[in-house]
């Protein structure tokens, strides 16, 4: 392996290591907080949500290797578009069915 390769390999390996550590921390924090009941309920919910979103971003960045470099805009576009549609579909479902539930109460 050339020196160049070795450097790249070390870099790629580092990305996975950082990803793992961040993911473990971002899981441990909400798990711990819930198990020990560290915050009031609404605080816990916020914390769970934020940790989850950050962790998902970490997964995309470190494991799925999605980044903002211009070389693969296609795929980024695909993912962002999908996220929009998913928000429409899943969010819409929660809204519509939730609204109906509220009206029936």
């Amino acid at each position: 392996m050339s020196a160049q390769d070795a450097k790249e390999r070390a870099h790629d390996a580092r990305v996975y290591q950082v990803g793992l550590v961040l993911a473990l921390v971002l899981s441990a924090v909400p798990f711990g907080a819930v198990a020990l009941g560290l915050l009031p309920a609404s605080g816990l919910l916020w914390m769970i949500a934020i940790c989850a979103i950050v962790q998902i971003l970490v997964h995309f960045r470190c494991f799925l290797h999605i980044d903002l470099s211009s070389n693969h805009r296609h795929d980024l576009q695909l993912i962002l578009f999908s996220v929009c549609i998913v928000i429409l579909m899943a969010g819409g479902t929660l809204w519509v069915i939730g609204n109906q539930r509220a009206m029936m109460m």
């Binding site: 899981s27 909400p30 798990f31 819930v34 309920a41 816990l44 919910l45 769970i48 949500a49 940790c51 989850a52 962790q55 998902i56 997964h59 995309f60 494991f63 799925l64």
Partner: peptide
């Protein structure tokens, strides 16, 4: 990709289902 993607889904599951459920 498949394996990492499933991990992302699991993050959603433990947050939305387990942790949220134990709090809510």
């Amino acid at each position: 990709l498949f394996w990492h993607f499933l991990d992302v889904m699991w993050v959603g599951i433990f947050s939305v289902v387990y942790l949220q459920g134990l709090v809510g």
